[in-house]
Structure formats: C-alpha cells, structure tokens
Design a protein around this nucleic acid. Structure first.
Lengths: 145, 145
DNA sequence: GTGTATGCAAACTGTTTGCATGGAC
DNA sequence: GTCCATGCAAACAGTTTGCATACAC
C-alpha cells in the first residue's frame, strides 16, 4: 500500500505507516482540502491516528513541496496536492462546489513578472482561481440553474 | 475629528466614537495590517477600546467594502484600505518589509477572465503581489544588499 | 424611544508543543 | 543503536459570542 508517491511526499523524512495513510488520504481526496477534511479522511482509515500527527505530516508535505497552500476556506488554510507540477511555477483552480482543484499556468504576463506597479519591486505573487469544475458546472446546467 | 471617510467606512451602520477611532487608525497605518496591528494602533489612541469592538468594526468595514482582505501574515488575515478603488476590480501589492500596500490593476488578461482552464468555469480570482515598496527598495539598495 | 454598538469575560476553533514511548533507518 | 515520529493532553493564539449597559439615530 505504500504508494510510490508516499516516499516523495516526505522527501528526506521517514516513511511511517501513519504518514503513508495521510498521503493516501490526500490522494483519495483528490482536491483542495483543509486539515480538518484531511483528518476526517484519515480517521476513516485509521481512527487512532492523532490530530497532531496529521498536522505534522502536513507540515512535512509542505516542506517537500508535495502539497501547497492554495487559499483559505472558513478560516482554515486550503491545501492541494501539486502532482507533477510541484517544482514549476503554477497556480490552482478550486471548485467552489466540490473543492476539486486543478493546476493551471500563470496568467500574469511574463513582462509583468518582476515589474514595478506604482514603483513597487514585485518579487512574487499569489493567484488562486475559483469557480466550478467541469462536473459541477455540467450538473448545474443540467438542473437548469 | 470625524474624518469624511469614517462615515462611509461603516455605510449603513452607526458612527460611534470608537468606530471613528478604528477608521482613523486604519488611515494612519496606511498599509496592510492584521487585526493585531490595528488593535495596537487603536489602543495608542484609546486604551479602553475593547478588542471585540475592533473585530466588530473590521467586520463592518469589510461589509461596506471600505477595507478588504488582501492576504495573510503569520496566521492572521491581512487587510488593507481600498481607497477610492473600493468598488472597482483591483488587487493589492504588499511590501514585505514595511507592510505598506498599494492598489494595482488586474494582471489577468481580459480574455482569460471567465475562462475555462482545464474545463473549469472560473468565476473569480484572488491575486496578491508581494515585494518591496519604493522606500524599502531604495533603502536596501543604498545599504548595498 | 428604539435598536444598535460597546465592554467585559467566557467560550471556541484551529494549531502547536512537551514528553515519554515506539519504530524506521 | 540512534534519532525521528507518534500519541496524548495541555497550552496557545486568534476570533467569536452572551449579556447588561450606554448612546446614535
């Protein structure tokens, strides 16, 4: 059950059964999630796995770049698995209905990247798109919204 | 001392001395701030003003669109006064050193606005730029970094 | 006069930490 | 064998809420 991914999710750290479970839960969620969402998914597999461990695993996965903070929902951070885009410059699209995410390129024109709007020296930017995923958009249309 | 702004900061609500103080503190900060930053600025003027009141005032200012959530710093939300841009589509640039902010246009090409990256129906997006304001950039250069 | 805003303190939520034990490497 | 990761519970920070009082309208 140790997914091939699980190893790289904790690059540099140890791969314990608990960490493998957390990584599996992330894959199973397949979209943006809060730590709470993740903890629920994890507890469905292993009810004995502590919350602190989930937080520590999330910290480790962030450190390795396997997941990324993509925004926030209801006061908690939203995270998402970056897939094979982990080390490229990219952004995320989050479905407002089901939370599914996808990776998308950077919409900021190359020419503006390290630009100086109003005299500021811009070094980085955060972009997150929100909307509906194909499935939810389709369902909404079929139900005639 | 009731700034002309104070009235619109709480559009629809009541303008109390406390709320005026909070609005004045926002203007005085002149940049991105956390509720904690704001509370400190407010307490410098009126030490007796309660924290809950600051939070409620922030809620009211958000509701009126006079301030906006522009990102996050150390686990707290970052807010900024939108000035005369309150009702236009805009984004913010935040100085990593001093926290000063400015308003900037939307870098997302018009053609991509309600676009469909990967089949998603995008309805909105959040963009925040981070970098150095002219003052901090200048200081850094002068000190030879 | 009516109803909203305040102030205080208690309650809550999300997150982090200390410490002894267990297990990956 | 060494050191990292775990689990539990306690500690924490930021934020919200209940309630009686004060005041903007």
């Amino acid at each position: 059950m140790p997914l091939p991914d699980a190893r790289e999710a904790y690059a540099g750290g140890r791969l314990t059964p608990q960490r493998a479970t957390v990584a599996a839960a992330v894959s199973a969620l397949g979209g943006a999630f809060t730590v709470d969402d993740l903890a629920s998914a994890v507890h469905a597999i292993d009810p004995g796995l502590g919350t602190a461990t989930v937080y520590r695993a999330v910290g480790a996965m962030l450190a390795s770049g396997w997941i990324e903070r993509v925004g926030e929902r209801e006061g908690s951070s939203l995270f998402a698995h970056c897939g094979q885009h982990a080390h490229e410059h990219h952004h995320h699209v989050v479905c407002d209905m089901c939370g599914r995410t996808d990776v998308t390129g950077c919409p900021v024109p190359e020419s503006e990247q390290p630009s100086t709007p109003n005299g500021f020296l811009v070094t980085r930017h955060e972009v997150t798109f929100y909307g509906l995923c194909p499935t939810c958009a389709g369902r909404l249309e079929r139900e005639g919204a």
